[in-house]
Design a protein around this nucleic acid. Structure first.
Lengths: 146, 146
DNA sequence: TATTAAATAATAATTTTTATAATCTGCTTG
DNA sequence: CAAGCAGATTATAAAAATTATTATTTAATA
């Protein structure tokens, strides 16, 4: 359940000397409970009622903190704004080019790519990112679409 | 050599009814000759001398045109601005998290990922994107770095 | 509970990208 | 090879996202 995840995440933060503020708790909770891939602004809007005077900068700052702690991944596409994904289990994303929908899927063992890349380039590899693009079932039906 | 590539790209554009303007020619040439991953602004600055009154909007517009024609791919990272890569042969990118350097490397056959994703999600897949993150040899040496 | 370093809020500023409208030009047709 | 038109470019302006700044507040520690 979500509570465990939240507690776990908070411990990770505490361990690296990050203070737990109500705002941080709320942002983490939002990410974990909703299991979505929100933009910073979506998070801000969602928490506006609980924190009437929270600042957008706070959302950005904390997402950056979470990202540095490895709790959150930033997803950037060609469009306007970044999206943020709570880094639970390893999974990849498939994105509909028509409507922008993001669906998670799992795929095992792309670690070999990292190994190969290390050998070929001399880099020390930390992680990788992979996304698949296409058209979702809904948009395939709605043929009357751009 | 680069000339062939440019001519080829221009034919692709003509075939899909896109006009060849001097600006478009120059942007294509820049992408192909430099084999880099420039931002729109870098392209703009590089061509400023040849086209003293070119507009940044032109660069953006044309990159979008090229992208739609499949000649160019947009690379977006967490940082500020998109980068654009002339789509030659299939290759992936490894990015240094310390200095931002982008190095190309080839890796065969990730088509299976697309197939799996199609089956699992019901999407129709068009293509995929994959990047590896780490530290480049230069930055590994310069330990005195953020 | 007092202290202090870190976090927040409230702007402001920057930066990237897109929209608009007037002017210009590549390309096709006659 | 000249004319005409659809599409392209310029020059702004506007929008949108993100970062910087600074005064105020607060979480965690002793």
């Amino acid at each position: 359940m979500a509570n465990g995840r939240i507690r776990e995440a908070i411990n990770t933060l505490k361990a690296s000397g990050v203070r737990i503020t109500p705002q941080r708790h709320a942002i983490l909770e939002y990410l974990i409970v909703n299991m979505s891939h929100p933009t910073a602004d979506e998070i801000y809007k969602a928490l506006e009622s609980k924190f009437p005077n929270m600042s957008v900068a706070t959302v950005y700052n904390n997402l950056r903190v979470f990202k540095r702690a490895g709790l959150v991944k930033e997803l950037t596409y060609g469009d306007s704004s970044s999206r943020f994904d709570f880094a639970t289990t390893d999974h990849y994303h498939i994105i509909c080019e028509a409507c922008g929908k993001i669906v998670d899927f799992t795929y095992p063992g792309l670690d070999e790519v990292e190994t190969v890349a290390e050998h070929v380039t001399g880099f020390t590899v930390k992680n990788h990112r992979m996304e698949v693009y296409g058209t979702c079932p809904d948009c395939k039906n709605n043929t009357i679409k751009n």
